[in-house]
Amino acid sequence: MTINWRGLLQRHGLILAFGLFLAGVALGNDAFLTPGNILDVLRQVSITGLIALGVTFVVVTGRLDLSVGSMLTLLTVIVVDQHNTLGPGLAILCTLLAGLAIGAWNGLLVGYLGFNALIVTLAMLSLLNGVTLWYSGGSNVNVVGADQSWFGVFGRGSVAGIPVPVILFLGSAGAASFLLRRTVFGRSVYAVGGNQVTSVFSGIDARLTVFCAYLLSGLATALAAVVMGSRVMGAQNTIGQGYELTVLAGIILGGTSLMGGSGSIWRTVIGIAMLGFIQNGLLLMGFPYYVQWLVTWAIIIAAVWIDLAAKRGKVFA
């Protein structure tokens, strides 16, 4: 019996390469693999990670959500601004509802009316940029009386030495994983992404499933906005710019296919964490900031290439 190298490489190739990278950086830098630095990286990726959890549902149905970056901006502005008028509790509630409403609108257009997901969410990105500027009047907002508010706990607090954002991220990941892996809804998500026609013939409400996936994407982004607002204690009109691409990069890096029908939450968590550690490692090694972007690009291309090579392997096995 020979070892199936190709299969092994396909399933664990990226994680192997990632392990080598971690070992390499750790050898050259004592500060890298310390508990403090690991928690620091996890804290840094928690906002991207929270959003990615929701977007994973959308991607598994075979759709995209490019509106999460500008959604993050708007929702952060809302939570910070409302904190000053309604207080933290109601501000958070407002933000979650706003996230669900935006998700519902995307879900309505893509799920029920069958519009192209790329176009719908790209248009939403533009719309939300406009709404943000209108809402904020173009100026930055800040939390007034930050010292007296418990709002800071989401971004800055910690429990037993573990930052609250990390707890929120990993806790939500556990819940999301259960939802996707074990429930009727999760199975429907995989089915719709795998073959929508078969799903309909099997009595699955494909439109509702897609709609709910976008709801989750909105909800996850709202949670991320609460963490973001709490950490920064303020919001600029560009605070979420580019997040949609980082989120997508993490999901792809984890090995979830953009074609839909496969993937998982733990893959997304690993993909997002890998992005974080790579960026952190490069900084510790003293590379200038822009190198992160070049390396991220290279890694994504490598991930897609390995995925493709493995699929070719099936045909010419």
Binding site: Y190, A191, G194, N195, T198, S199, F201, G261, S262
Partner: peptide
């Protein structure tokens, strides 16, 4: 293939 099965899924699912 188009209406009966989800080809990427196993028999159980």
């Amino acid at each position: 293939k188009e209406q009966g099965l989800i080809l990427g899924m196993g028999g159980r699912q």
